[in-house]
């Protein structure tokens, strides 16, 4: 196997690079640009039971080395994702991590039960951290007791390992990480976006129609690295790190802090070819570091 390959619960990946949920749609647009089989995995856009049209526009606003978004979990709903989106991705040799969202525990359970039966879905990512919907999402991710109970409920029905996507919008992310681990989570993905706001220079009003949005991009990387570093010390389940990754060095940084794999989000909007570019850059980085296999560097910050 290649120097980049590794194993994670439910996932045997060629490399640790995967597009982050919400930044890659359901892959179709990017499949016109490059062979998706090059990717380690794909985290598809959040799926809810029902069709969601999302928030009013403007939904994005640029900020210093970053952007705010408040898309609002727009997706075609579970039935369409099962019927159209997932079957389309079967033509590629790439495991899918299905991002599961909802308003109630029952919603999460319903989506998880069904979507985990799709042949190419090898893991779930519980979205308990979306800051852009009024109900559900982040409310599950900011209370350790509620988070744990949700994970337990989903674990009972899921056919595949369950990762939980953590919100950075909490006082103590370690507490939440420990709670989801105790609830039976197989892994953690982190971080989701940071709640922010940008004002219009002329009117003084928020630029984004929703008022607040989630901050992502290179601006958030130091926060994400710090959080991965802290959570790695506190839990025994693997972490998929993300937050401002744009190049191979960022991947090395996240893995050094403790991530076993790395998701690329906003950078896909800046350069749609960024994921294959990073995968190509990685062996050169390993040479520079004098490391044979990429997985050897996981958690080296803590040695």
């Amino acid at each position: 196997m290649s120097r980049l390959s590794l194993h994670l619960p439910g996932l045997d990946v060629k490399n640790p690079i995967m597009p982050a949920s919400g930044c890659f749609g359901f892959g179709k647009e990017f499949s016109n640009l490059y062979d998706l089989s090059k990717l380690g995995a794909i985290m598809i856009k959040a799926t809810t039971v029902e069709t969601r049209i999302g928030n009013p526009t403007p939904r994005v606003a640029e900020t210093a080395a970053g952007m705010l978004n408040a898309i609002g979990l727009q997706n075609p709903g579970l039935e369409q994702v099962m019927k159209n989106e997932l079957p389309y991705l079967e033509r590629f040799d790439v495991p899918i991590i299905a991002n599961v969202a909802g308003t109630t525990t029952e919603d999460y359970v319903e989506v998880a039960k069904e979507i985990s039966t799709a042949p190419n879905v090898k893991a779930l990512e519980l979205n308990i951290s979306c800051p852009n919907v009024k109900h559900g999402g982040i409310t599950f991710g900011t209370d350790p007791v509620i988070a744990r109970e949700l994970v337990e409920a989903v674990k009972k029905v899921s056919e595949v390992p369950v990762y939980v996507k953590l919100s950075p919008n909490v006082t103590d992310i370690v507490e939440i990480a420990k709670a989801v681990e105790a609830g039976g989570a197989d892994g953690i993905t982190m971080i989701n976006t940071l709640v922010g706001m940008r004002l219009d220079e002329r009117t003084g009003k928020p630029v984004i129609a929703n008022g607040t949005g989630g901050l992502s991009g290179p601006a958030v990387k130091p926060v994400a690295i710090r959080m991965v570093y802290e959570v790695y010390k506190a839990v025994n389940i693997p972490i998929i790190g993300m937050g401002g990754v744009t190049n191979a060095q960022d991947v090395i940084d996240f893995m050094s802090a403790g991530a076993s794999a790395v998701a690329v989000g906003t950078a896909n909007f800046v350069d749609p070819f960024v994921c294959p570019k990073i995968i190509e850059e990685l062996p050169g980085k390993l040479e520079e570091l004098g490391v044979k296999r990429l997985k050897e560097i996981i958690g080296r910050s803590h040695l």
């Binding site: 930044c23 647009e29 990017f30 640009l33 856009k45 999302g54 606003a61 898309i71 727009q74």
Partner: peptide, 17 residues
């Protein structure tokens, strides 16, 4: 014309009803 993110249809920023 609409405020855009990716420009290729992936980010759902430039939606019109």
């Amino acid at each position: 014309e609409e405020r855009m993110g990716c420009g290729i249809g992936a980010c759902f920023a430039c939606i019109c009803q």
